[in-house]
Design a protein around this nucleic acid. Structure first.
Length: 777
RNA sequence: GCCCGGGUGGCGGAAUCGGUAGACGCGACGGACUUAAAAUCCGUUAUUCGAAAGGAUGUGGGGGUUCGAGUCCCCCCUCGGGCACCA
């Protein structure tokens, strides 16, 4: 059999679509809009299978929606700031801009070869001044409204590379580049106040649209809302007091000690009065030297130091010892806790180790639980708590005790989030400069809008020293204060690249706007994104940051929507040899080779066919042969149909037409439900039936022939657009992309015969083919 | 520890409402074509007993509901992912 010439066909249609602007959002159209978006890539230079999977799904949706008459917006851009370009620059001296743009060109070419349709006139790349000007604009608006602020914060620092590292760059406590140990260092850093939106980000998940449950669960988990109580503990014989937060106010009578985190501010005052000054100082020092990793993971053996001081339990005036221990984190709650060893496992271990009293205040109904081996954390009944005895814990007793604290002005109910403010400053070159100036007189002053963008200066050495690479450019750093015109210094940090990606989907609706980042009207017309498709690895960071950005931009009046993404689809990863494909593992399967050897249509079909889209899959080297065979067979069938003798309708023809109709019904439903693997198999089944027909029959009516070619090309179009466009054009001399999706004939779905099955005790015993007596619908 | 998903042939996976388990594809085996190979075409392919007809078993394990369970309920095992000293 001769193979169809996929190379020629694919390249022809790719040029055709591009020259005819086959996907273009039409402002004037009355058709319903559909904003279809794939997560834009970091331009690594090589398209990998993860991209192929992502863009195949995205393109399928674009084409399906086009045939269904939607006014589709399908843009693409580049997440083009980031470390790899900077590392390459350090190594080879090539400017990150040049390095990045070469890679963008290469990758864009590969995306086109996949046959993915994008409206390239809307392309954005975040590293261009035309884009980052508006990232800076938004930053300034955030700064002016208090959403961006600067404060001292502990960061991951590699003393060998002389740089701050992102959490993702710290691998088991070591620098991912030089393997030296990462330490905690206090630096003055920029933050965005995302925690202000904790409640809204959490509540928004309830009615957001169609999002995968696991992604919603991950975000809920990350936001980590908990409701408890906050109250003060007074230190005996002093004026000193501090706040503690607990989710278990019902256990208040069981408090037998209190703990401060080693970084707690009040320790400075404690040092003046404690007999254990030396021990405290040395404990603080050792806690500081531990890396975050070590501190959180070090075999969970708890350590601490006794201050020798006592605090008073506000509910019963009992005096209990005050300790300092690093199992209490300074940046959660109040950085201090009441410790109830009887009912908290961590407190229990600490109490056992240091021989601290344990008082049980909850038991089960028969009072048979004890706390000798471990803490009792389950629901139960209050004991040893005076007037609160016999109340049910946790809910009822907590409520009563909080009411008591509130009525006696001792404390109050309090909501705490795990979500922390977002540290966005990076001591890096290849990122968006922070548009702020430090003036000795005026303090932190934002750059004037008319002076934007603050352009990344050219420097010779991209390597960090003790400060950011941008500090090396004298011209960049030394400026006049926009306020008072006195000598001032520019910020030398750049922004986390997640800032760039938190609003790119907004720029796509208005990419050429020269006066503002985007028009609010256009955003309202096109957003939320109707279908967002991307990898599950962005379940928390990117998707949460973008949601935060939209809410923050709404609150400062720049747009009028609440959520950026209506429906989210997370595709599974593609592994090979049991692990994630990566250059360092040497297990990368290059999609480009398949464009040459099997064609983009075969690759797309195989990706669609291999597994349900949400599943993680193992790359199967031979599997693509199956979809290639299918396309060859399809091509051959179409060829045979073209030559078949046209005549009156025969009996088998009626069956074939019904099969086609059933296939229309089934493929449509599977695509709607994102069950692309079974959509492909439906088409394979019909193609096999068509082969059988053509082998045994010699005639077919013109009407049926045209119905079959028309329908099957349309059904195949979103999945394998090149071959279907070619066949359609050969038969009808029309552009398939401008046609309408086929409609199922509901009257011709059901086979007039059926198999009667008789089961006895659930086992099939008799089956027989019968004619249906009534036409059912 | 907590929160999400999963577990079906040699493999990837199908199976709207509880109603013929294993669609479709890969691989394997047998055959045709060929000097030969590749490609292509035809056939077989859950396990097991049987020459065959046919029978028995079978969706991680155990129980239950039902005329009937991959599907519903309870318990357990196990794999993957996320979070994790979060008070």
């Amino acid at each position: 059999m001769k193979e169809y010439n996929f190379r020629e066909i694919e390249s022809y249609w790719q040029s055709y679509w591009s020259e005819n602007n086959s996907v273009q959002y039409n402002l004037e159209s009355n058709n319903k809009k559909f904003y279809n978006l794939c997560m834009y890539p970091y331009p690594s230079g090589d398209l990998h299978m993860g991209h192929v999977r992502n863009y195949t799904y995205g393109d399928l949706i674009t084409r399906y929606k086009l045939l269904n008459g939607f006014n589709v917006l399908s843009p693409m851009g580049w997440d083009s700031f980031g470390l790899p370009a900077e590392n390459a620059a350090i190594k080879t001296g090539i400017h990150p801009k040049e390095f990045t743009e070469q890679r963008i060109n290469k990758m864009k070419n590969q995306i086109i070869k996949l046959g993915s349709l994008y409206e390239w006139d809307r392309e954005v790349a975040v590293h261009t001044p035309e884009y980052y000007k508006w990232t800076q604009y938004i930053f300034i608006k955030f700064f002016e409204s208090g959403l961006a602020y600067k404060k001292d914060a502990p960061v991951n620092w590699c003393d060998s590379c002389k740089t701050v590292l992102a959490n993702e760059q710290v691998i088991e406590g070591l620098c991912d580049r030089c393997d030296s140990e990462v330490i905690q260092k206090n630096l003055n850093q920029w933050f965005l106040n995302i925690s202000k939106y904790g409640d809204e980000l959490l509540d928004g998940l309830n009615d957001i649209g169609d999002w995968p449950e696991n992604v919603k669960a991950m975000q809920q988990n990350w936001i980590g809302k908990s409701v408890g109580a906050e109250f003060s503990l007074n230190i005996v014989d002093t004026e000193l007091k501090f706040d503690v937060y607990t989710t278990r106010p019902d256990t208040l009578y069981g408090m037998t000690f209190a703990v401060l985190s080693p970084e707690h501010e009040i320790i400075n005052q404690i040092l003046e009065i404690s007999y254990s000054k030396e021990e405290i100082l040395s404990y603080q020092k050792s806690a500081k030297q531990k890396s975050e990793f070590e501190r959180l993971s070090s075999s969970k053996e708890k350590t601490g130091v006794d201050t020798g001081l006592k605090v008073i339990n506000p509910i019963n005036q009992k005096e209990v010892p005050l300790w300092i221990a690093d199992y209490v984190l300074n940046n959660y709650g109040t950085g201090a806790i009441m410790a109830v060893p009887a009912h908290d496992q961590r407190d229990f271990e600490f109490a056992k180790k240091y021989n601290i009293e344990i008082i049980q205040v909850i038991s089960d109904e028969k009072n048979q639980k004890n706390v000798e081996e471990k803490a009792f954390v389950d629901e139960g009944v209050i004991i040893n708590s005076n007037e609160f005895n016999n109340l049910k814990s946790h809910q009822e007793a907590s409520k009563k005790i909080v009411e008591y604290l509130e009525s006696s002005n001792l404390g109050s109910q309090k909501t705490v989030f795990r979500l922390r403010d977002w540290l966005i400053s990076r001591q890096r070159y290849w990122g968006c400069p922070i548009p702020v100036i430090n003036c000795k007189k005026c303090g932190l002053v934002s750059e004037k809008i008319e002076n934007l963008p603050v352009v990344l200066p050219d420097i010779k050495d991209y390597k960090n020293s003790d400060e950011s690479p941008l500090a090396k450019s004298v011209d960049f750093v030394n400026v006049k204060c926009p306020n008072c015109n006195s000598d001032a210094l520019r910020e030398t940090d750049t922004m986390d690249t997640f800032v760039d990606s938190s609003w790119y989907f907004l720029r796509f609706v208005d990419p050429d706007n020269k006066s503002i980042p985007f028009s609010s009207e256009k955003v309202s017309a096109l957003l939320p994104v109707d279908q967002y498709i991307g990898g599950v690895e962005h379940a928390i960071l990117h998707l949460l940051y973008s949601r935060f950005f939209v809410k923050a931009l709404r609150d400062i009046g720049m747009l009028k929507i609440d959520e950026p993404f209506l429906n989210l689809f997370s595709q599974g990863m593609i592994n090979f040899g049991g692990s994630k494909m990566s250059k360092s593992r040497g297990n990368v399967i290059d999609p480009e080779a398949y464009f040459e050897s099997h064609g983009a249509d075969s690759l797309r079909l195989f990706i669609l066919f291999m597994a349900p889209p949400t599943d993680r899959v193992e790359w199967n080297v031979g599997g693509i042969e199956g979809t290639k065979r299918f396309l060859n067979k399809f091509w051959e069938n179409m060829d045979a149909l073209e030559k078949i003798f046209e005549d009156v309708i025969g009996v088998n023809e009626i069956d074939l037409v019904r099969n086609m109709n059933q296939t229309i019904n089934s493929v449509t439903q599977h695509i709607e439900k994102f069950e692309f693997n079974t959509a492909v198999s439906d088409l394979m089944i019909f193609n096999n039936k068509l082969s059988d027909y053509l082998k045994t029959e010699t005639i077919l009516s013109k009407k049926s022939k045209e119905f079959i070619v028309d329908s099957i090309c349309k059904l195949l179009f979103p999945l394998a657009p090149h071959i279907s466009s070619e066949v359609y054009n050969k038969f009808f001399e029309k552009d398939l992309i401008k046609q309408n999706w086929p409609i199922t004939d509901m009257d011709n779905l059901i086979d007039p015969t059926y198999e009667l099955v008789v089961q006895i005790n659930g086992k099939k015993k008799v089956y027989k083919r019968n004619k249906r007596r009534f036409k059912s619908r």
